[in-house]
Amino acid sequence: MGGAWTITRKELLGYFCSPIGYVVLVIFLGLNGYLFGMTNLEPGMEASLRPLFGRFMPLVLLFIMPMLTMRLLSEEFRSGTIETLMTAPINDAAVIAGKFLGALLYYMVLLATTLFYLIPLVRHGTPDWGGVVAGYLGLVLVGALYIAAGLLFSACTSNQIIAVICSFVFLALLAVITDWIAMNVEGTPRFLLQYISVGYQYGDFVRGAISLSSVAYFLTGTFFLLFVSVKVLESRRWR
């Protein structure tokens, strides 16, 4: 995977040099700060990050992650830099891996800003560390899946707007709509819909449990979407 790390570094630094990185950072900090303040900083509230990790977090990410991923490949196609990129001695999988890791690391920087909320929890209470660890792990896994989906749509088009809309619709289906439908059907369809729903799979982490099947769900989903992205990038060779 020579060259993947070079691309990761470039993408990660790129977020700190571009307006979109800061826009996403501000939205993320603003929303989380508001939620944390409204729930945890009230008298008599539980000393945990559960509100932060709550079920709506996949919804917040639903809005901000496509913004992080939309330019990853679309911009290369639009500006033509894809030609210089792909004629360097680097293979398609390394390009996808590098871009994915770059976005994932930036997202982890975003998440790291919420570590600050632990300070008042530790000073004024005794948080359940297992719950904290499970929550963060869950968020990293959800983020990875969203980034892989965003990267796939970014690989499909040279138009960032189309990439962001398609990622949003796809993730909305995966995270929310399947859950809604699942609640209105019975039996096997319900089971299947719940199984593919991000909200349902993420539920365990919210409760502070790390279940193997959920971890497997996120990892296979992420790898599958990355694999398809590599194939989409390769497909330009036989067009």
Binding site: G14, C17, S18, S79, G80, T81, I82, E83, T84, T87, A88, P89, I90, N91
Partner: peptide
């Protein structure tokens, strides 16, 4: 891939990363 390590290519539109 081996071949690409031995070439340099300047595409027509000179694509670069402006940032």
């Amino acid at each position: 891939r081996q071949m690409r390590a031995h070439i340099g290519y300047l595409p027509e539109s000179t694509p670069l990363y402006p940032e």
